[in-house]
Design a protein around this nucleic acid. Structure first.
Lengths: 334, 334
DNA sequence: ACCTTGCCTGCAATCGCTTGCAAGAATGAC
DNA sequence: GTCATTCTTGCAAGCGATTGCAGGCAAGGT
């Protein structure tokens, strides 16, 4: 059907090795030979079969891209950037959706069966054992958005969620709020835990500030909305730190229903700075997570690992910053 | 490194064929043999290499999933559903991001090099030649969200955009608006053209209704917002049909800035019914596109094509319906 | 007891490509 | 013109699996 190496060799009247070599860069072929082969190849419309090639080179250039978070708008950017960055390195993303998968073991085996060269786990909610499972099979892995330190034996690229939590707290404190709430995402996510820890430790430095916290059932609009409505029954704080932007937009919606003005009555600080948060009808003040850098760095790290699989594991953490919009009152000089 | 067929055969003291056969269903192996092999395989932690297997079976179970639309929230659902549905059929999505690709030829060749079993092109903005390129190489292809009829030689699954345009027009007419605008996405997208055609042909049946139209520069919030602000300079219609939901949300935001109340002053009808449109602080009345059915059907069709590559091409179109929320005034009985 | 039938199993070829090795061609130095 | 070097090239052995074919064996019929 589609022409093979042999067809080209036959037509060009040379050996298959010659053909193979003109298609692998760095191999020694004379100009004359190369021209001959390229002509035959062009006439036949031949291009080498990666799959067959990978059998001997032991490189598929396939990278498993696994995630379990397909419903957060932030992942639009994540997928776009990952696929582009990988493509630019000549790598191909094999997408794995873990959403309804109970047994991660399956995915590990499956990716192994496809001989992926590496795996990037893009999730802050997957247990660290998951990433480790790949490492144990000697498959290079980087855990993007992962928690560092939990598993010092796999590469992690992301942010320091504890520091980010502290930053959020300081921001709210600087606005002079005297009663502050943490309204996080699901408690089992490591990112939630870390942001909470950072946030609380910072707030507790200010004994005059009333601190409260609770966790929504998911990182979703409805969960945020429901939680703030529930909280309203027993009285609200002056300001909240929402677990992430979509949660926060839900909170915003709930507050509107309650007749509360933001930021006049209540302040709100989000997290992630997804595109939508900048929309004029939302204008959420939020903490920016540098997705672009995180992903570029993840891919870069992956590429480096392909050359040196035994690379000593590292954590690459990028700083966040707050982007001011319209859901927090101005900074107070006391 | 990882154990191979041969290792298992050696350890079990049988031929490689025996091992191969116990791992391919439908092959004839005695129970005794199977037990022996399975034991050895388990001890070694063996599982067959798909890549090597594909060389002889000529089936990789890889499906190219190509799109150029990574920034529309609707695609969160699209990706989630596609990956799940494919996984459930034992297929693996190889993601291709066409966003910055000028030359589709590249992608075609690349997917061919990976010997994908099939390709699903998920886009309403890609030219039909693109899908055809795969067909010409004898790679099964289904164009999801494509325009039917343009290329009767490739399978298309989606909606009838012309009918949808008509539906939108009828809906606005039924609300008694006397001056109606079409505010579409980029004119080059076939979906825009078709919806426009349907919309206009229906409106023109009502000579008493003033009809106007324009096209935003992209299917994005900012483009919608900018366009409505521009239109406002020369006076607005009573109601608009927005090209899609994110565009419409931009329009909503622009109208708010203009001090217009929706639906009291101006009506707005969106398209797609993405999750966000149902959020209480948006509550966009819109036309629902049955994504779930479309994708399930696409995958089903793909699977069928794998069995019979010469299947006669068909177009599968699903009906839309309007979902009423809060951006259109009630139906008027004249 | 003999033959037929059908199930299992192993041999060996094959899928499309790469690569170590050795032989042949070309180049340059003398 | 000779010889040592450096380039090119082809041969053949894999990479990890599948599969047509034929032989071996046991069961069943007579």
């Amino acid at each position: 059907m589609t022409p093979t190496l042999k067809d080209v060799a036959l037509r060009a009247g040379v050996s298959t090795s010659a053909v193979s070599r003109t298609f692998t860069d760095g191999a020694s072929v004379s100009d004359k030979m190369r021209r001959k082969v390229e002509k035959a190849a062009a006439e036949l419309g031949y291009s080498p079969n990666f799959i067959a090639r990978s059998l001997t080179t032991r490189r598929t250039k396939l990278i498993g891209l696994v995630s379990n978070n397909f419903y957060n708008p932030i992942f639009l950017e994540v997928f776009d950037r990952f696929t582009r960055a990988l493509q630019d390195c000549g790598l191909r993303p094999l997408l794995v959706n873990l959403s309804n998968e109970t047994d991660p073991e399956n995915s590990v085996r499956m990716l192994q069966q496809y001989s992926v060269d590496g795996v990037v786990v893009a999730s802050s909610t997957l247990p660290p054992e998951f990433s480790k499972a790949f490492r144990d099979k000697n498959i290079p892995v980087v855990n993007t958005f992962g928690r560092h330190a939990t598993s010092p034996d796999v590469h992690v690229v992301g942010i320091d969620n504890i520091a980010a939590g502290r930053m959020a707290a300081r921001e709210l404190v600087s606005r002079g709020y005297k009663s502050i709430g943490f309204l996080g995402g699901p408690e089992r996510a490591t990112s939630t835990q870390d942001r909470f820890e950072g946030f609380r430790s910072e707030i507790e430095k200010h004994p005059d500030i009333a601190f409260s916290y609770s966790f929504a059932s998911a990182y979703s609009f409805q969960a945020g909305r429901a939680e703030i409505l529930r909280l309203a029954e027993q009285g609200l704080a002056e300001a909240y730190f929402g677990g992430d932007d979509v949660l926060s937009i839900g909170i915003l919606s709930g507050l509107k229903d309650l007749g509360k003005q933001v930021p006049q009555d209540i302040g709100l600080l989000g997290f992630n700075n997804m595109e939508m948060s900048g929309w004029e009808n939302i204008a959420l003040t939020t903490i920016h997570q540098p997705i672009a850098q995180i992903i570029a760095s993840s891919v870069e790290l992956m590429v480096a690992m392909l050359d040196d699989p035994d690379r000593y594991p590292e954590a690459r953490l990028f700083p966040c910053h707050v982007v001011e919009r319209k859901t927090l009152r101005p900074i107070q000089s006391r």
